[in-house]
Design a protein around this nucleic acid. Structure first.
Lengths: 155, 155
DNA sequence: GCGAGAAGATTGATGTGTCAACTAAGTCGA
DNA sequence: TCGACTTAGTTGACACATCAATCTTCTCGC
């Protein structure tokens, strides 16, 4: 790789803030969930996705697709969540390879009690601080950035 | 927690894109570094910070402050990096509790060979896709969001 | 049907981050 | 100068993500 165009002072500044943000925001989200619901953000994402799919049972692979997660990540987390009694897995009726995921009643209780606090967190940290126009612009920027990464086969 | 204001369709959409982005971008960055430099983004951050501080040796705690990382995170990563021969630790001359961090020559080689590719990644995925005005707006938005999280003691 | 290959899912090794508990070294007041 | 407090850093237990390897079940051409 030959000499690239190095970053200017302002670019460096934006990059550092961006990088810190990428780290800090998920951690803030995890803290909110840990503190208020004794749950990780991954667990919340799974519970929310499965509860929204109900009453249909969600297949493990569909869950992976919905969340845009790797299969093995889903598998590991489901194992831990099953051990905690939050979800249940059973062989899919149609396809013997598939696993149908359902919430246990403890899972339902958990997601119902966590949802209000989490929605409030999202509102107060992401939506309220930004005007409607800014929200729009943010969405467009994220989309542009993602596309650039996709083009480089890195997303 | 009483009933919160639930998210509208558009808000839900933005939130999902945002959440996916928060996951996807760091992973894209890690992939670039793993692929081109056999290195994690954490290792790159440490090497870059220590190399910029040179020729002064950087203390472990200052590194934690600079990167805004937890102390133990720094400590664990430094141990692994020392085992790989990228950095060295020695008791700080002034304060017997401190640890001075320096790059080994392998560490210098590594960061020098990784830097061009990484800067190019940052330019192509973050800076180039956005106009100067957008970059500005992005910085402001991130700052607003961060402040909102700080106010809730979650950052 | 049957054998090759695709698809769904799990597993184990490894690297990484977090929290809480701990050790060691500096600081400071009486 | 001694004892309490603070600060720097490490450690261990645990949660989590990734990758590669594996196992099972489906599918499809013959």
């Amino acid at each position: 790789m030959s000499e690239p165009r190095w970053l200017t002072e302002e670019e460096q500044q934006l990059w550092l803030e961006f990088r810190e943000f990428l780290w800090g925001y998920p951690r803030a989200m995890d803290r909110q969930l840990t503190r208020d619901a004794t749950m990780s953000s991954g667990e919340y994402a799974v519970l929310a996705a499965v509860s929204q799919a109900a009453p249909e049972a969600l297949r493990s692979g569909d869950l992976a697709t919905t969340l845009e997660w790797e299969r093995s990540r889903v598998s590991h987390l489901l194992r831990r969540m099953e051990a905690k009694g939050l979800i249940e897995r059973c062989a899919s009726s149609g396809d013997g390879r598939g696993q149908d995921i359902t919430l246990t009643s403890a899972g339902w209780d958990t997601v119902r009690s966590a949802a209000p606090g989490h929605v409030t967190f999202v509102r107060e940290t992401l939506l309220d601080p930004l005007s409607a126009a800014e929200q729009d612009q943010l969405g467009q920027m994220l989309s542009k950035i993602r596309c650039a990464a996709v083009e480089r086969n890195l997303w």
